[in-house]
Amino acid sequence: MNMNPLGDSAIMIRFDDNITFETHQKVMILAARLQERPFPGMIEFVPAFTTVTIYYNPIHLTYQEAYAALEPMVAELEVSSERTSRIVEIPVCYGGKFGPDLDFVATHNRLTTDEVIQIHSEAEYLVYMIGFAPGFPYLGGMSERIKAPRRSSPQLTIPMGSVGIAAQQTGVYPIETPGGWQLIGRTPEALFRPHESPPSLLHAGDRVRFRPISPEEYHQWKGVTS
């Protein structure tokens, strides 16, 4: 574990140099502590794969003071505690116009499209962090059997809700954005909800399952929620 400045207004705590479940647990425990007991001068924090970054106001607090406020919180973390995570189910309509690259992912892995859907939807994924775009989850736990390279050139617009695969990662695009992932399906669920608090459906530490739905269910869902 080490603590270092990130510029003159933030401090980064790094627990490890490898992404492991144990490191993730430490990240989540510290995040929970900071949420419950922010120290004076703290602005916000961002949990990531192996780090927690804490932003503070340098007008009120020197780096040394921020360090001193955090040190005891980090020290007592060494005592590992059990955390229960929330499971969030995300409905996905796989293939067709919603998942134009499903065939590619299947062919690439010598599988049928049904097998890709089954493998993708039977796994349980862990949200390591949210980043890249509002509400975008970095998920761990995808099977190697369905991994696929990124597209050689990124698409200018990937529709909101697209579910993609890049190498051994899978994720959902919460807003329309450019991107280079292989798109295998789309969810009607909104991952980014700017008018709700908190605005992201998913948070670091959540567990995720994808549930296959038909195009009819997709449209029905969209009709109900919009």
Binding site: E44, V46, I130, G131, P134, G135, P199, S200
Partner: peptide, 10 residues
């Protein structure tokens, strides 16, 4: 906009 960087909000 502060407080939501952990949700990916810039």
């Amino acid at each position: 906009r502060y407080g939501m960087q952990k949700d990916g909000v810039i």
